[in-house]
């Protein structure tokens, strides 16, 4: 999910950077005092989780937990993902500082989208919430791969080829993320329902 430095064209870099900036600004604005620690915990989880390699599929995939972050953080997943990616960039040279905006957008935008799409379902109990959680994890990865393919399509390969390659590589991850998100959400719903923002 990390696009390397020097692959993308400047217009994409600027567009990604602008979206990431706007998202981070909204996220920071929506962040209230009570949520700060929660956001930082999920940032750490994201940071560590995306270091695990899932040895499935033709490419190299790793957990993103975009769906989970979307559900739990809403717009605040933008600053969370930005910080985690920034640290990964300077510590491990994953991605790069110039493509940071694009990488953040690729992972955070689908998460926010899923948050709005499935938010109402989360207020309902039982099976419906579980399904929503699974779809959230699944869809966020799918949309992330789509965004990544879109970003790459303006470079050497066409959109169709790039998207086929990337989506095929991430299909196993979509299911894994869906299942992980489902279990985490149902566990949180039992143990810590406030954190799910279930009650208004």
């Amino acid at each position: 999910m990390h696009i390397s430095e020097g692959v993308l064209s400047p217009s994409i870099l600027i567009a990604g950077g602008a979206i990431a900036c706007a998202g981070t600004a909204i996220g920071l604005k929506k962040l209230n005092y009570d949520k700060v620690m929660g956001v930082s915990l999920l940032t750490s989880t994201f940071f560590v989780a995306s270091l695990i390699h899932v040895p499935l599929g033709p490419g190299n995939v790793h957990l993103v937990l975009g769906g989970l972050m979307g559900i739990l953080l809403g717009w605040s997943c933008f600053p969370a993902i930005l910080v985690a990616l920034f640290l990964q960039t300077i510590f491990f040279q994953y991605g790069g500082l110039i493509v940071l905006g694009v990488n953040t957008t690729i992972m955070a935008l689908p998460a926010v989208f899923c948050f709005y799409l499935f938010r109402t379902w989360f207020k309902k109990n039982g099976r419906k919430r579980q399904m929503a959680a699974f779809s959230c994890g699944f869809l966020s990865i799918f949309l992330s791969s789509l965004l990544m393919a879109l970003a790459l399509s303006f470079t050497d390969k066409g959109f169709l080829q790039a998207s086929q390659l990337i989506i095929a590589a991430h299909i196993p991850l979509m299911f894994i993320e869906g299942i992980i998100t489902m279990f985490t959400v149902s566990f949180l719903a039992k143990v810590q329902p406030e954190f799910l923002q279930i009650k208004e």
């Binding site: 962040l31 005092y33 700060v36 620690m37 940032t43 270091l51 640290l87």
Partner: peptide, 21 residues
Amino acid sequence: DILGAIGYILGLAGIAAYFKS
């Protein structure tokens, strides 16, 4: 590295919490 990064994240959270408070 990983523990250090988590430390950074918690530190940033502290800064954010300070400004919010």
